[in-house]
């Protein structure tokens, strides 16, 4: 019961923080909408997409990049979680969390789940906006994708959580943009299919295939069309476990990185 109470408390706290930061929701919507409305329109003619699973017919470029942009929303939200953890650490409020009698892994899981649920809200707000612009998926796909979106949100949140144990200061967050977000996004199938990358550079396509973000995007893409991409789902689950384990290690006072820099 104690565990559930703490989980509920953290969920409420994170929800209130999210609701008080209207610009966060706005930017979470605006960023992918710019890509969808402006970038995709511009490249629509230049980048044709052949018939490839899970699609059963030719699709427009906007439809192709929709799962990638959903992934982008979750990727940025995961990094926002990381940013807020670093901020909490710098302002001191992280200590209030870490001196709780509950195990640290549970506290981190609560933060992770709260972040993933926030990302779900953002994703569905984006899907609604995309629908308004005529970019749609099968009706049941919206529902079928929910558990996959939760899984991908947890995985990208866990990556953010691990990063927050590595980043020393808030100022270093710009480096995360350059060294994590951009490579993860561009070296993936978010904007172009892997076979298209392979045509010009097989090595890049191989690297992109191993990218956890690619696996997240593909898992979302298939779920939206009521199919399961099991290898991608397994990849996402494996990455989630790896990042979560690294985050728990990072926040362990005896072994982790946090000990060297957090509390001075």
């Amino acid at each position: 019961m104690t565990y559930i109470v703490a989980l509920w408390g953290i969920l409420i706290r994170e929800s209130l923080r999210f609701l008080s930061q209207r610009e966060r929701l706005l930017s979470a919507l605006l960023r992918p909408m710019l890509w969808l409305v402006i970038f995709a329109s511009g490249f629509r003619a230049a980048l044709g997409v052949a018939i490839t699973p899970p699609y059963e017919t030719y699709i427009t470029y906007e439809v192709y990049i929709l799962p990638g942009l959903i992934g982008m929303v979750q990727l940025f939200n995961g990094m926002q979680t990381s940013l807020s953890m670093v901020y909490d650490r710098e302002t001191g409020s992280m200590r209030a969390l870490l001196v709780s009698p509950l195990p640290r892994w549970w506290l981190l899981f609560c933060k992770l789940l709260a972040g993933a649920l926030v990302s779900l809200v953002q994703v569905y707000a984006f899907l609604l906006a995309a629908l308004a612009f005529g970019v749609a998926v099968p009706a049941w796909g919206y529902l079928a994708a929910a558990p996959v979106l939760l899984l991908t949100g947890l995985m990208l949140g866990a990556a953010g959580l691990f990063l927050s144990s590595v980043i020393r200061q808030l100022e270093n967050f710009a480096g995360v943009m350059n060294f994590v977000i951009f490579p993860a996004f561009f070296l993936s199938s978010a904007l172009y299919p892997l076979w298209k990358i392979a045509e010009s550079n097989p090595l890049l396509a191989e690297l992109a295939g191993w990218n956890p973000f690619t696996q997240a995007v593909e898992a979302i893409r298939f779920a939206l069309y009521l199919q399961a991409d099991w290898p991608a789902l397994a990849g996402v689950a494996g990455s989630l476990l790896a990042f979560a384990a690294l985050a728990v290690w990072g926040y362990d006072p005896a072994r982790g990185l946090i000990r060297r820099k957090v509390m001075e």
Binding site: G9, I12, R13, L16, R17, S100
Partner: peptide, 18 residues
């Protein structure tokens, strides 16, 4: 948590104690 109310700060701390 400076953005939360006084009451919420207390409730949050209690929740972390279960």
């Amino acid at each position: 948590d400076l953005d939360l109310s006084v009451r919420r700060n207390l409730a949050y701390a209690l929740a972390l104690q279960g």
